[in-house]
Nucleic acid binder design. Structure first.
Lengths: 136, 136
DNA sequence: GTACGGGTTCGAGCACGCTCAAACGCAAGG
DNA sequence: CCTTGCGTTTGAGCGTGCTCGAACCCGTAC
């Protein structure tokens, strides 16, 4: 093994985009806004993403998927860069986010009952007006 | 009691905004884009929202809260205007939405485990580096 | 050399869902 | 009559999170 891992060496932006399900545009955008650390370049300026970059990106995607605003993810990334002494603050940020997501889930479940109720109402109306199966 | 109900007569836009937790701006916007039917006006052009408008608005808010795009809500409103023969289509629209919301909830729960896991990791790091309660 | 494939930067543009400013109307009170 | 308060319309602007186009660079194959 050389200076880089063999089995999972540095990836090009297109590879990472494919793996992550994002566009190369979005990856550059994430880096630009400080969500991703500056990615190492090879001679010529092309990015090569390491395993750490991929792991961080995957976590970032979880945060996005759970609705964390980019502002907060940037803050989180910034804390990461500052080192271990920010771990407490990072945990608190995640805990606040977790609380919000749980609240969001509860809200969705609550409001969904109204939708489900309406569906039921419509089903009843349909069988009433369109009695395909009248009292046997 | 005049020509209007006493207990729950027509409401001004400000009243409805307060009740619904929306701004008057947003109510006019919803009407403009066809989410709300044209609201009846008094002499002078001011809107007066009836009980039916309020009920519909409340349902619209449920749809919004569960993440239905405005495009789809407009479609739903349009079907409503077309009359009873669109009930089947309306139900299908709601059922599709319901499926999506359930998927969204599942996704949130799944991705939240990554967040929870990270919180746990951080907690362990903290107690390791900052042993406020070493082995008693 | 030149063409090609893949990458780069920079800045503009877009979709969504509001949000607001400006200019105006109307009715009631003093 | 004039002010005050509440409302109206029209159209512009905004915050978020991408998304894309244009111009350019680099290394390899022919």
């Amino acid at each position: 093994m050389s200076s880089t891992d063999r089995a999972a060496g540095p990836r090009t932006i297109t590879e990472v985009a494919t793996i992550a399900g994002l566009s190369a545009h979005t990856l550059r955008y994430y880096e630009r806004i400080g969500l991703l650390d500056p990615v190492p370049r090879v001679h010529g300026g092309q990015r090569r993403y390491g395993a750490g970059d991929l792991a961080w990106l995957a976590f970032v995607q979880r945060l996005r998927a759970t609705g964390m605003p980019i502002r907060d993810m940037r803050r989180f990334a910034e804390l990461r860069r500052e080192g271990d002494h920010t771990i407490g603050e990072r945990r608190e940020l995640l805990e606040r986010h977790r609380t919000e997501v749980l609240a969001r889930i509860a809200e969705l479940e609550r409001d969904l009952t109204a939708v489900t109720g309406k569906i039921t109402t419509y089903r009843n109306l349909e069988t009433a007006h369109d009695p395909r199966q009248p009292d046997a």
